[in-house]
Each structure stands twice: as structure tokens, then as C-alpha cells.
């Protein structure tokens, strides 16, 4: 076999900020959090908010179905070729943290196949409070919890709540119905997170996903600066 060394193959270093042709790759933002906290709904809302100004794509990590990808396709938030589903073998946290190879393949294929992208959202399968993304896969991560999952979650902390670049407390409209104390959730989250930001969000409210979309724009501005 030839022993020639080529530099135009796929990147050997996954976290490299450049594609094999030397251009800057897309910013990758991960969204993680427990089952049912509103990750897919947040991804859908972000796509609607950003798709006119940015070239973006989504990778979903479904646990045992293609429901999340199917939901995004059905809602037509992006053209189908911009949405890819990764299968995780019953272990969603493994696919985003311990063995990121399938997800890296998905983000690289999206960039190769749908042209230059500004942003790729990588949505984790619903998991537990310890599930965080590898820095080899994403540049920044959002952890999504909701008020109905228990208002003690911000106090309990854990890697997602404590270290994610943005914590979203979702479904604030449900707080009065489930007896959750929003002010306490926000104070606990801030106490656990130091300078890291927290957004309280209701996708049904007037502001919708605006605060999270603004945070994404800031990250993108820093990425391309």
C-alpha cells in the first residue's frame, strides 16, 4: 500500500476549529437535560428564531426511537437534509461524552453535505443530571431543566446544572400549577453557578426563546471574532 501522507482527509483532531480545507467550522452548541424538560421544543424554537439570519443544522440523539428528529421534521423547522439523528445504543450520555465518534461523524457530514454552516445544535437524548457534553464534541453547552421536575434541582446541583455554559429553567408558566418556587430556583441556580448565566423561559410566553437565542448570537459572535 502507499505510505503517502495526505492532509486533505478528515481531521485527526475532532475539536479542531478548522475543517480539512482550512475554513472555520460551524460553532457547535450542545443541549442536554432530563427527559421531558423541553430540549426538543427549545431546539425547534431556536431554529425558527435563527434560521433567517444563520445557516444552521441539528443533530438529535434519540434514546430508542427517531421521535425527536421526526418532531423537528414534522414541525418543518429546517429542511430535512439539515437534521440528522444519531442512535445511541441505550446510552445517550456515552454518545455525547465518553464515545463521541458517531456524533462527530454526524456534524462533519452535515458540514460536508449541506454546505457552509454557522451553527450546529447537538441535542442529547433525555438523560440524568450528570450528563454533560465532551469538549471534543461541542464548543458550548446548554442544560435544560423544567419547573415541573422539582424546584430543588438547582439546589442539588450536579455537573449539568453547575457547569453548563447556560442553564435554562423551562416551562415557567407551569410554576404555579406544580407548586414550584421560581425565585428560589433562580437563587439556588445562581448560588451554584457563580458567574455562569441562567435563563428562566416559557416557550408559550411572549418572550419565548428570545433570551436563549440572544445568548447563542453572543457565542457565535465570539466564535467568529
Amino acid at each position: 500500500m502507499s505510505l503517502g501522507h495526505h492532509h486533505d482527509g478528515p481531521a485527526a483532531v475532532p475539536a479542531d476549529a478548522h475543517r480539512p480545507d482550512g475554513t472555520r467550522r460551524a460553532l457547535r452548541i450542545g443541549l442536554g437535560g432530563p427527559v421531558g424538560s423541553g430540549k426538543t421544543a427549545t431546539v425547534a424554537a431556536l431554529c425558527r428564531a435563527l434560521r433567517e439570519e444563520l445557516s444552521l443544522a441539528v443533530v438529535t440523539n434519540d434514546i430508542y426511537t427517531r421521535e425527536d428528529a421526526a418532531f423537528l421534521l414534522r414541525e418543518a423547522v429546517l429542511p430535512p437534509e439539515r437534521i440528522t439523528a444519531v442512535e445511541t445504543g441505550a446510552c445517550p450520555h456515552t454518545a455525547i461524552r465518553d464515545d463521541i465518534s458517531a456524533n462527530l461523524e454526524a456534524v462533519e457530514d452535515l458540514e460536508d453535505e449541506v454546505g457552509p454552516l454557522d451553527l450546529i445544535l447537538v441535542e442529547s437524548g433525555g438523560d440524568n443530571l450528570t450528563a454533560t457534553f465532551s469538549k471534543g464534541l461541542v464548543d458550548a453547552q446548554i442544560f435544560v431543566i423544567d419547573v415541573a421536575g422539582g424546584d430543588d434541582i438547582p439546589r442539588k446541583g450536579g455537573p449539568g446544572v453547575t457547569t453548563a455554559d447556560l442553564l435554562v429553567v423551562n416551562k415557567t408558566d407551569l410554576a404555579p400549577h406544580v407548586g414550584s418556587d421560581l425565585a428560589r430556583m433562580e437563587a439556588d441556580a445562581k448560588a451554584n453557578r457563580g458567574e455562569l448565566p441562567v435563563v428562566l423561559q416559557s416557550l408559550r410566553g411572549e418572550r419565548g426563546v428570545r433570551d436563549v437565542a440572544d445568548w447563542v448570537r453572543e457565542r457565535l459572535a465570539a466564535w467568529t471574532a
Partner: peptide
């Protein structure tokens, strides 16, 4: 991908 990062080698680059 994993092997190239673990044991860099021209034959792996060639295969990729």
C-alpha cells in the same frame, strides 16, 4: 478516527 488520534500513523491517514 479514534485510532488516528491515539496512534498517529501515515497508514491510518491513507486509509481515512
Amino acid at each position: 478516527r479514534a485510532a488516528r488520534a491515539t496512534w498517529p500513523h501515515p497508514e491510518l491517514d491513507e486509509l481515512a
